[in-house]
Design a protein around this nucleic acid. Structure first.
Length: 386
RNA sequence: GGGGAGAUUCCCGAGUGGUCAAAGGGGGCAGACUGUAAAUCUGUUGGCUUUCGCCUUCGAAGGUUCAAAUCCUUCUCUCCCCA
């Protein structure tokens, strides 16, 4: 990806002139990336920002990866708001590492430095914190969308939550960031960084925001907790299968934001054969995250299932008996969590054994020979006696 | 500090003594249709049980009652208004 592609994809740049000036200065710039250790699972949505960062690295700049361990350790004491579970010191380090491992599928390891924000945030005195808070007004903090929504919906907002933007902004001060990149949902936080740097006598960082990738549900932004994500750690098969499930109207955005494929040809394929466009997208993503060699296996599974065949390499579950009730088998393979659920699945005709729909939930499975259980459209398991 | 409103099953939301495992909607899951898409239609959506039925659940803990999501007491939390 070339640099002009960054600017083309960006939603907003504050400020364009400042950014150009720094890039032309010949200095190695410090590009800030904030990581939330309470959510260390990265997905394609994160890749949008990471890919932009990669471009900066390729130009010789340094990415400073800031793990928000301080906020994560404090968590949210108000019992009702479970969005920010508090983590122990060890957990934050572990999450930071997990995050880093995934992010470096896209970023260069050599040009990425990790910092933990407890290093500086834990040292602030109350006086300094007051100084920080005095730079901002409540009205301005409440401008931020998620606060505004919670406020309007009469949801609780705790005092310390109002400080999060300031803490993040202070991170920029602490590392003297030159540039910070994030999704449009972070716009406010990123701009707070600029304000605070100014207060501390630093040149305010340049801020670039990128569009948020909408998840597979076609409505919400991609996130692990909504289970509408395509994970950077997903297997090639899953990656490909999920690619096929991207809502049609969003496919172009996925191409645009997560691949380097020229958009003119994308447009053409989408208009002429949307299914083919999905397939090509899936292949590209598999290639990007698992290499060219993984494409074959990933697509083979998909097409086999689509034809009504049983795919290769399905997980095997060994049981001790020669005969096992179907309900027990479904629990054993983790397809269901209770007998009632198993019964519902069977009554809904969602379970097949050796390609046959199971009609009777008292069915006893003969597993002296291997048998294949299919749950829904694409989940397969083999069960056999040891 | 004073006054008012409220907390229901994944979410929103009805329910004010038995017919309530709890309407309706959303979301989820499964099926039909299809391109393993969308839209649409159907079923399902606490657990155990073949049926009967039993158990757990309506912020928490006690209490009244043959019987409570529903009544009483205390507590916790949230929101609004006034100061």
């Amino acid at each position: 990806m070339e640099f002009d592609q960054i600017t083309r994809r960006a939603v907003q740049i504050f400020t364009q002139e400042g950014l150009l000036e720094r890039l032309n200065s010949g200095k190695t710039l410090k590009i800030k990336l904030g990581a939330d250790p309470s959510r260390p699972d990265l997905h394609l949505g994160h890749s949008v920002v990471l890919r932009a960062l990669r471009v900066f690295q390729d130009m010789g700049h340094e990415v400073i990866f800031i793990v928000g361990d301080y906020t994560a350790m404090i968590g949210d004491p108000s019992g009702k708001n479970k969005t920010r579970p508090s983590l122990s010191f060890e957990e934050t380090r572990k999450a930071g590492k997990t995050y880093f491992d995934q992010a470096t599928k896209i970023l260069s390891k050599e040009k990425t430095r990790i910092e933990y924000n407890s290093q500086w945030l834990s040292k602030l005195s109350f006086e300094e914190i007051l100084k920080l808070t005095s730079k901002y007004t409540v009205a301005r903090i409440l401008e931020r969308d998620d606060f505004k929504n919670r406020f309007e919906n009469q949801q609780p907002i705790c005092m310390h939550e109002l400080l999060y933007p300031l803490m993040q902004g202070y991170d920029s001060v602490a590392i003297e960031a030159d540039v910070e990149i994030g999704g449009t949902d972070q716009t406010f936080n990123l701009l707070v960084g600029r304000e605070l740097q100014k207060e501390y006598g630093q040149r305010p960082q340049e801020v670039i925001t990128f569009p948020l990738l909408i998840g597979l549900d076609g409505v919400e932004k991609m996130s692990k907790s909504l289970d509408n994500y395509i994970g950077l750690n997903d297997s090639p098969e899953i990656l490909f299968e999920k690619s096929m499930k991207i809502p049609d109207p969003l496919l172009f955005d996925y191409y645009r934001l997560t691949t380097d494929i020229p958009l003119d040809s994308v447009r053409e394929t989408i208009n002429s054969d949307i299914r083919k466009a999905h397939i090509e997208y899936g292949k590209e993503i598999v290639k990007m995250y698992h290499g060219e060699s993984a494409i074959d296996a990933a697509t083979r599974r998909y097409f086999k299932v689509a034809q009504g065949d049983v795919p290769d390499n399905i997980p095997i579950r060994v049981v001790k008996a020669n005969e096992i009730p179907i309900i027990e088998a479904l629990k054993a393979i983790g397809a269901v969590t209770s007998n009632s659920e198993a019964r519902r699945m069977i009554e809904g005709r969602g379970i097949k054994v050796n390609r046959e729909v199971v009609q009777d939930y008292n069915l006893k499975l003969d597993v002296s020979n291997e048998c294949v259980i299919q749950v829904g459209k694409s989940k397969f398991f083999k069960v056999k006696n040891s």
